[in-house]
Design a protein around this nucleic acid. Structure first.
Lengths: 345, 345
DNA sequence: CGACAATATTTACGTGTGTAAAAGGGAGGA
DNA sequence: TCCTCCCTTTTACACACGTAAATATTGTCG
């Protein structure tokens, strides 16, 4: 059943009796070739095995039809959801996507960016690591190809287009909700490495002050072994609960993964977070991690609109690629968060 | 601060006064060039911006130094964990990885395989969708390049190397544990689409018979809207609990994501799975999904050794690439599962 | 049957780098 | 000073396909 394998378009040309330039056009877009010829070519392709060489194809084209995407973590469903949205949008636009994960390592992130440049991708979509990202590499990236940041916006790259969530709005929203329905929350943060985390913390502080409450941030001094969010949330609250602290407070976690750890800590101490008639422990998160509805108790949170972010990032990139951008000012697009009221707060 | 951009190695050659072939050798491996010349080149590279063209580099090499990896889902931490392990192992071996996700769509999976072939990757690692995978494409893949299957082994590809878990062992292990410590479990399965699921079901049945118990499989007839595992687990048990069934049985779920839904259903009905002194509801899973320790109750499960699977898959691929394989019989490597005893069973 | 338009083919060159063979140059030893 | 040896340079061709221009073919219509 093995068909004879043909390596080059030249050979294919002689094998099925169609000139090579015509074949070239056919493989780029069959509609550029007369239907009858298309039929002849496809018939020939039935009898032999041939796939155009990816590299040779891209080498001498003005456009490679590819975009590069970098995400910081793979083991985080938020980013995989975002990536999925990006891939779907890109596919709809007829682009193929090259995905790289930086695995929390700036040097890997930098290498991925280098690879994209050497591949002449039409553009790049990057969810950066943040502070630690290699600035020089990103400056070159920006000067070389269309480039849009997603999710997190390092201060070192103020002149790059950005698509993300409005954390002032989203965190303000849930902070306001928590204040309105119960006791003003404390904010369970991370050691300060992440821009979004800082922005959310600032939003929390601002909203608390606006409501006339005293903000209170915890957890910034706790460093756990693995550094995973869940472990952090659990460690901070486990320590607090063990000392009898915070057991009937409202706790707003910097993100859902921290909240997952927080809920776990509560359970270990026999506490069930939720909005009771007379106060008690409440726990809320941020992001709407896909598993939130399945936690016990299910997690009240603010959803980031990952779908919109992915779509917008791709469409913005296409705009830049298409040269439809005149101004030199970066476009910043922020989507609102939406409250997801569940059991935990 | 912008250095002059140089596009071709030829231009670079005249710009820094080193011959092009020498530069070519330098970019492939600096140790092929005399240290003093290396220093001169690197000094020149400080003054100009140049990256070798990815496509031109790969076009005429015997080896591209790249491997392709296909995973079926992105929104599943099991696969992202596996992917992470593969990427690390590949990086250690000096290979660069091209990742594609088939998003549960056989046609996307097939396209990814085609892409790998057209890129002349040195080899491919595939966690297949299963039944629905395009056999013809994989036959060509196998005939064209080194190719190792991971995680799931479709019956249609018996002659391909495989690395995965021994589900007879792992599922047998937890089935035996459940039988030994409490009541014999029922098996909460999925509509039958997945090879691993079928294998686990068979392992469950076999172990139950061996222990002298009557196997009982549920959930194969329930189809939920989204098709997500968690939703499935919750739907099946919610229906059962609503009718007062299964409330004090042991339930072995086909995987942890189903178990997450199962635990959620239990919580909604006021049930807390766990090994009590006098029986009661127990829920167990399979895979050791990263969030298992943080569920309430934390989930008892069998861990798949994703790290070993990823490493072995890469090393096996390297063996085939290196031509160290003589026999025509496929190598099947199965790693044992390990019991993770937590609260839920 | 002839002329025109739409396609296809031919021809030729470009894309940026790998690679092999032959020729060149400098350092070290006799 | 000459002669190796080792590395670099020169030269030339290969890789598989894109693309443009000129030419040939085909089909169609009057």
């Amino acid at each position: 059943m093995l068909k004879p394998r043909i390596k080059t378009m030249e050979e294919l040309s002689v094998a099925i009796g169609i000139s090579r330039p015509t074949l070239s056009r056919f493989f780029q877009d069959p509609s550029l070739v007369k239907p009858k010829t298309v039929a002849r070519i496809e018939e020939g392709l039935e009898r032999v095995e041939y796939v155009p060489n990816f590299f040779a194809t891209r080498l001498n084209r003005k456009s490679t039809g590819m975009i590069g995407v970098i995400i910081p973590y793979l083991n985080d469903l938020f980013f995989t959801k975002l990536l999925e949205s990006v891939e779907v949008a890109a596919m709809d636009a007829g682009l193929s996507v090259i995905t790289k994960c930086s695995h929390s390592d700036p040097s890997i992130e930098a290498r991925a960016a280098e690879t994209f440049m050497s591949m002449n991708v039409d553009g790049a979509l990057v969810a950066p690591l943040g502070d630690h990202s290699d600035q020089a590499v990103y400056q070159r990236l920006k000067s070389r190809l269309p480039f849009v940041l997603m999710d997190s916006r390092p201060k070192t790259m103020p002149d790059v287009d950005f698509v993300g969530s409005d954390h002032m709005q989203s965190t303000g929203l849930i902070t306001e909700y928590l204040c309105r329905v119960g006791e003003p929350p404390v904010f369970l943060a991370m050691p300060r490495v992440n821009f979004n985390a800082l922005e959310r913390e600032a939003a929390y502080v601002a909203q608390m002050k606006k409501q006339g409450f005293q903000p209170e941030v915890i957890g910034t001094d706790v460093v756990t072994e693995s550094g995973y969010f869940e472990e952090h949330g659990e460690a901070v609250l486990d320590a607090a609960f063990a000392q009898g602290r915070l057991t009937n407070r409202s706790i707003l976690c910097v993100n859902d993964r921290v909240a997952i750890g927080a809920i776990r800590a509560a359970a270990r101490h026999g506490l069930t977070p939720g909005r009771g008639p007379n106060g008690g422990l409440r726990i809320a998160g941020h992001d709407d991690y896909p598993l939130c509805p399945y936690l016990n108790p299910s997690l009240t949170t603010v959803a980031q609109n990952t779908d919109a972010i992915g779509k917008k990032a791709v469409s913005r990139l296409l705009q830049i690629i298409g040269g439809e951008v005149v101004k030199d000012v970066p476009e910043i697009t922020l989507f609102d968060g939406h409250l997801k009221l569940r059991e935990s707060a």
